[in-house]
Write a protein that binds this DNA or RNA. Structure first.
Length: 699
RNA sequence: GGGCCCGUAGCUCAGGUGGAUAGAGCACCUGCCUUCUAAGCAGGGGGUCGCUGGUUCGAGUCCAGCCGGGCCUACCA
């Protein structure tokens, strides 16, 4: 296969300006970073130590100890091996942990739960870190922690190392067809994926982030057909369009794609343009192929820039063109044929196709009767590669370096002199919307059909429901609807129809709104700096908005709600963290420094201070960040982390109003409160970081 | 027709493997800025957890059947 004009010279890197256009200066690639002049650098000048990466989970290890103590005792006493669950009591007066083991045992022992519970409490003896055990209600065992010991443990920062097995987890997300601007649906995908990655990394996992680029598919072909047939544009003209700072190329393609799709429905014979373009792309020659390259490469740049605004980064961009050129499919095809996972249909509507049986009545067509492979077929090959099962690999070259030093790689079809390798994951998460669950089943079935049972089980469709627009919202946004759509409770975003809210437009609206607030509160600040803070607030608002819904809830997008900065929102969480910082900064401004907590806060001090229920509850909540993340990872639900962040911020705001820390006259209490504030700050910042929500220097 | 998902306060949504009096935000009402920033705090009203059965000490949660809505079920992705 000809590779000559595939990766033509500077298509990806010849013009950095276009990448930056429309983007705030602090969200850019590392290369053009101006030295010293960055307002971001000034704004983020730390007035106290930067957040340390803390992996303490004192609470979690206590839970484990309690669970094990009960398990061992129950084993010895009753000869039953019970995985003892630890719950959180419904009300805080009941203590910090609840053990419902008596209920579980009641069935097997045929005794009243209450009786079993009292025996357990009497016989188990003391558990380190636990101050008291009580029986409540009909058989709950409620535990109270030793507050002094708990506080001291938090201060020491006793940590439990992450549970990384050293194996690689691959998360594939974003995967936007490179033929138009990104919209809110894509934003949900990328935000969910990116946050899940951050959650896994927070727990010490080794994660590789892949963003698959379908640069040879139907959608790209349609835009190319639009340029060529509808607009009669040559590659030279399209190249000029891309370079033109007055147009946004991804927005231009958004409209063109919709126009082309509409043209198809009116002129069915025009569909041959698509086939013709796809063939040209496959052959890799001629104007159409060149146009396809120009379009896909430029749009990929636009998508990366859009995602970077939300602080979303990738490790590698595997491209479909390489899957094609490096014969990935041919290799997978051979395997599938050999293992008889697919068969050549001889009759019925699928005659002449290679079909995978069992998934639907007629089976799923993998290879069309004209010999071309479907998207799912290529996806099976790609999935095999992710697990290192294909027996082939891409070539790679560095594509970008992010500001944090992370290098983004892209696949190539010719050796690039790099020994970098990707893939070989032991677990693969595909962040793809729920509408494609059937296709994801086909992919897993493909692995199974090849005998890769284990890997099929570790191919996880990280599915989520679509983002839709309410008819009212469409009206507000001036989006015209068909009669049919108007009757629906919500209409789905559709690139084909050009129906949707563009990601960058939404971000821009959010920044504009945040900027009004910032300007009114901090008119003294430099405009550049105001804009930086507004951007951080906008990102916080947007990411939180997209994360607060659980995955299988359809988001009926509402602009008013998305633009809200009050209540359960990102800015609320940011505001709490900013307040905590302000207290510590104010301390510095008064010429004081943070006390030496380790020297001043003994377990006895903690016992005295944490005797106050308010302080104890608030500290307890703040100490559970890692438990919350772990629970969320287990549930595969970033929304749980978002909810925790909000509750933590709520607890802090309450604390903030109740206790004027810098005014506190009692020295011991003041030191203790300062420590609490700092602890809160760290936990809030860490949790916000996992959500990808920046904490502004002020609000 | 088959598969998946949803139905909880006026609205938008949470509700670890069944467990204690079903929660939050918004909206509405009442208070709180000489204080570490009110993008905040405190308080109030608001519920047949779609319906009907079943499982059991106990069901918003599990099972079955209905009702209403969405998505998928392509030689598109």
């Amino acid at each position: 296969m000809g590779t000559g004009n595939r990766n033509r010279s500077g298509a990806e890197s010849n013009d950095k300006r276009k990448l930056i256009r429309g983007i705030d200066p602090w969200y850019r690639w590392s290369q053009p970073q101006p030295a010293g002049s960055s307002p971001a650098a000034a704004a983020s000048r730390p007035c106290f130590p930067p957040p340390v990466i803390l992996v303490f989970s004192v609470f979690h290890s206590l839970e484990k100890q309690v669970s094990q103590a009960f398990r061992a005792h129950i084993q010895a006493r009753h000869g039953i091996d019970l995985a003892v669950a630890i719950e959180q009591p419904r009300q805080s007066e009941f203590g910090e942990m609840a053990v419902p083991a008596a209920f579980q045992l009641a069935r097997q022992l045929r005794q009243a739960p209450k009786k079993i519970a009292s025996e357990l409490v009497e016989e188990i003896g003391s558990i380190p870190g636990i101050a008291a055990m009580e029986i409540a209600g009909n058989g709950y065992i409620n535990l109270r922690l030793d507050r002094g010991a708990y506080g001291a443990a938090l201060l020491r920062g006793e940590l439990e190392a992450g549970v990384s097995t050293g194996e690689k987890i691959i998360v594939e997300h974003t995967n936007i067809n490179p033929n138009k601007a990104a919209h809110i649906g894509h934003l949900r995908n990328a935000t969910l994926g990116d946050t899940f990655v951050r959650m896994l990394r927070a727990l010490g996992q080794n994660v590789e982030v892949q963003n698959y680029i379908d640069n040879t598919g139907v959608q790209v072909a349609d835009v190319v057909a639009g340029f060529h047939h509808l607009e009669k544009k040559t590659p030279v003209q399209v190249r000029a369009l891309i370079a033109d700072p007055a147009t946004r190329f991804d927005y231009y393609c958004w409209d063109l794609y919709a126009r082309t799709s509409a043209y198809y429905t009116e002129n069915a014979e025009a569909l041959q343009w698509r086939a013709q373009t796809l063939h040209a792309i496959e052959a890799g020659e001629g104007e159409l192929a060149e146009l396809a390259h120009l379009v896909a490469d430029a749009i990929v740049e636009a998508h990366l820039a859009t995602m970077l605004r939300l602080d979303i980064e990738y490790d590698v961009l595997p491209r479909e063109s390489e899957i094609l050129h490096l014969q990935f499919w041919a290799s997978a095809f051979e395997q599938l044929k050999q293992r008889k996972a697919i068969y050549l249909e001889t009759e019925g509507k699928n005659a002449g196709c290679w079909v995978m049986p069992g998934l639907s009545e007629e089976g799923k067509v993998i290879v069309r009767s004209d010999g071309t492979v479907t998207y799912v077929g290529k996806d099976i090959a790609y999935q095999l590669w992710k697990f290192g099962l294909l027996g082939k690999d891409f070539y790679y070259r560095p594509f970008r370096t992010y500001m944090d030093g992370r290098v983004l790689w892209i696949t190539t079809d010719v050796p690039a002199g790099s020994d970098h390798h990707f893939g070989h994951g032991s677990q693969v998460y595909n962040v793809i919307d729920a509408r494609q669950s059937y296709l994801q089943e086909v992919v897993a079935a493909g692995l199974r059909g090849l005998g890769y049972e284990q890997q099929a089980g570790r191919s996880i469709h990280f599915s989520y429901e679509m983002v839709a627009l309410s008819p009212r919202c469409c009206a507000d946004l001036g989006i015209p609807l068909s009669e049919e759509d108007r009757k629906k409770p919500y209409v789905e975003v559709s690139g084909r129809k050009g129906l949707g809210v563009k990601a960058d437009d939404l971000v821009d609206s959010l920044i504009a709104k945040a900027l009004e607030e910032v300007a009114s509160r901090h008119s003294e600040a430099a405009p550049e700096e105001q804009r930086h803070v507004a951007t951080q607030i906008a990102i916080g608002a947007l990411r939180y908005f997209l994360l607060k819904y659980t995955r299988n809830s359809v988001i009926a997008f509402d602009l008013q709600e998305a633009l809200s900065f009050e209540g359960e929102t990102g800015p609320y969480v940011q505001y709490a963290a900013v307040r905590a910082r302000n207290i510590l900064r104010k301390l510095e401004e008064r010429g004081e420094t943070l006390p030496d907590f380790t020297a001043e806060l003994s377990p006895e001090v903690f016992t005295r201070q944490l005797h106050a229920e308010d302080f104890w509850q608030v500290l307890l909540a703040a100490s559970k960040a890692d438990s919350a993340v772990e629970r969320a990872v287990t549930a595969g639900e970033p929304a749980h982390v978002a909810k925790y962040a909000f509750q933590l911020a709520q607890a802090f705001n309450n604390f903030y109003h109740l206790y004027p820390i810098l005014q506190e006259p009692d020295r011991e209490k003041r030191v203790f409160l300062l420590w609490m504030t700092d602890f809160f700050r760290r936990q809030l910042e860490r949790t916000a970081g996992i959500l990808g929500i920046p904490v502004p220097p002020y609000m």
